[in-house]
């Protein structure tokens, strides 16, 4: 019994040694999130416009109701989002919007540093989301 006990503790002590820690010295050191991490949204640009066709599926599926879309017709007669805003204060980063999108126009990036000072700064407009 003692043998097993020592074996277990040895693993614990091993992790205490330098080079075995999982935490990093944030913000001096930053981790690279995994590819499937659900951070800040990004609207995918196409050649001369956004890929989004304003189909309203993301605001419909959004459980936090944080997406505002207003569709309009551009000069070519295509449907495009005149307004596309995500209220990051309400977003729960569930990723349903990405899942619902029929044209893969929205994706989630690894950006997770979203803290800010003013409420308005959490309104991510189309221009900000396209960056």
């Amino acid at each position: 019994m003692f043998k097993e006990f020592a074996k277990g503790l040895s693993i614990t002590f091993k992790h205490l040694l330098p080079g075995h820690s999982t935490t990093v010295q944030y913000p001096k050191v930053k981790l690279t999130p995994s590819d499937r991490f659900r951070g800040l949204h990004r609207l995918v640009p196409a050649q001369d416009r956004e890929k989004c066709v304003a189909c309203y599926l993301c605001p419909t599926v959004c459980p936090a109701k944080c997406i505002t879309v207003e569709s309009a017709e551009n000069e070519k007669g295509e449907k495009y989002p005149e307004v596309y805003t995500i209220d990051m204060l309400r977003c729960i980063f569930c990723g349903y919007c990405v899942e619902a999108c029929p044209v893969e126009a929205i994706e989630m990036t690894g950006a997770y540093e979203l803290a800010n000072y003013a409420r308005e700064d959490f309104e991510f407009t189309k221009q900000r989301l396209l960056k």
């Binding site: 309203y56 419909t60 309009a72 017709e73």
Partner: peptide, 9 residues
């Protein structure tokens, strides 16, 4: 009504 809204809205 073109592009004004979706039926469920």
């Amino acid at each position: 009504f073109k592009f004004k809204a979706r039926p469920w809205q």
